[in-house]
């Protein structure tokens, strides 16, 4: 009975050790994925921003600008792509909706962003675009990969429609989490006018273009990223846009927008709470179980040895007294036989 128990413990030890390894090398990379049907909204604010008044063609300071960003996972498109190719993808329909002091729309830029659900590599399908312009992204956008590493990444900038490095600048603490700080600077670059102009502005982007006006943009983009989930738990942009006229006109640039855009504190707090919950699951699968299960396996194996040792001590016949052995030796070496009987049995 005890020997059977020790065999069960050996099997359990092997099971736990192998399961721990398999969780890390097989289950974790295959199971951890971005959901394809998620909906999220984040509200950002730029207090004391400067904003253009198109009727005066001048920048007006001390404006409060609100930006509502939404991400909606297009599950239908993602599943259709997976059926065709076997690859798990996520297709995000994103919208940046900008509101002024009066609550009226200043701008709305839609995006379609398809990417690999596990690795976050960009996938070129499903109508990928920014503001209706088809393109092929390079690098990441919105979210960093699971298990983010402390090095630079290529980050897609939707204004310039190009990718540039976002630099790892260090590790810090934020709301009780260890986070990586990344920063990207986009230098002054000419960018297209968005298709949706502010409410009440009759001029179209094509008409602005034909007048020779140009839209230029620069930003410093900052992210504080939880390395386990790759989720930015805070973000900020020091964002500037100008309306520039051809040099021959002699007219000075006009500020379209200038402000420090930050996540509203209530949304930031909700983000931190969500990340803390999600990272617990990931850490369990990535670190805790792969480490803990093999340790339990070692304990089970040690217990198996103990049980087996006790079983053998119980079943082993009593050793002959020394005197008897000596007597036996005198009678033709029979003591060797007695010693051999008392020797340990074959190992497990």
């Amino acid at each position: 009975m005890r020997q059977r128990l020790s065999l069960v413990l050996v099997a359990l030890a092997a099971f736990l050790a192998v399961l721990g390894v398999m969780l890390r090398v097989w289950v974790y990379p295959h199971v951890v994925a971005v959901p394809d049907n998620q909906y999220q909204a984040v509200v950002l604010e730029a207090k004391d921003a400067t904003l253009i008044d198109y009727s005066k063609m001048a920048g007006v300071p001390h404006q409060h600008v609100t930006i509502v960003e939404t991400l909606k996972g297009d599950a239908g498109a993602a599943e259709a792509y997976q059926r065709r190719t076997g690859r798990s993808v996520v297709v995000w329909d994103a919208l940046s909706y900008v509101l002024g002091n009066d609550g009226k729309r200043l701008s709305a830029i839609p995006e379609v962003y398809p990417f690999d659900a596990h690795t976050q590599e960009p996938v070129h399908c499903c109508g990928e675009n920014v503001d209706g312009q088809a393109l092929s992204r390079v690098g990441i956008e919105y979210k960093f990969p699971f298990d983010t590493q402390p090095h630079d990444y290529q980050y897609f900038d939707p204004q310039t429609r190009t990718s540039a490095p976002i630099h790892y600048k260090g590790t810090t603490q934020l709301d009780g989490l260890t986070v990586y700080y990344f920063e990207q600077t986009i230098p002054w670059t000419r960018v297209p006018f968005p298709k949706a102009m502010p409410d009440g502005v009759a001029i179209t982007p094509q008409q602005i273009d034909s007048l020779g006006y140009q839209r230029w943009y620069t930003t410093v983009r900052k992210f504080w990223v939880d390395p386990v989930t790759g989720a930015p738990i805070n973000g900020e942009e020091v964002h500037n846009e100008q309306l520039r006229m051809p040099p021959s006109s002699g007219m000075a640039p006009v500020t379209i927008f200038s402000g420090d855009v930050k996540i509203r504190p209530d949304y930031q707090a909700a983000t931190v709470a969500l990340v803390k919950k999600e990272r617990t699951l990931l850490l369990l699968l990535r670190d805790d179980l792969p480490t803990g299960l093999p340790l339990l396996g070692v304990a089970a194996l040690a217990l198996a040895f103990v049980v087996e040792g006790r079983a053998r001590r119980r079943t082993a016949p009593p050793t002959l007294p020394v005197a008897s052995v000596a007597d036996a030796d005198e009678h033709g070496g029979a003591g060797e036989t007695a010693t051999a009987k008392g020797a340990p049995a074959a190992p497990l």
């Binding site: 199971v31 951890v32 971005v34 959901p35 998620q38 999220q40 984040v42 950002l44 730029a46 904003l51 253009i52 600008v65 930006i67 960003e69 991400l71 994103a94 940046s96 909706y97 900008v98 200043l106 701008s107 709305a108 830029i109 956008e141 919105y142 979210k143 699971f146 939707p158 204004q159 006018f193 968005p194 502010p198 839209r215 983009r221 992210f223 386990v228 989930t229 790759g230 989720a231 930015p232 738990i233 805070n234 973000g235 900020e236 942009e237 964002h239 846009e241 379209i256 927008f257 855009v261 930050k262 996540i263 983000t271 969500l274 990340v275 999600e278 990272r279 699951l281 990931l282 699968l285």
Partner: peptide, 15 residues
């Protein structure tokens, strides 16, 4: 339940 929710942050559009 083993998936992780991503979170978006700032990419402000043109006002």
């Amino acid at each position: 339940p083993t998936t992780a929710k991503p979170l978006l942050t700032s990419a402000p559009a043109h006002p």
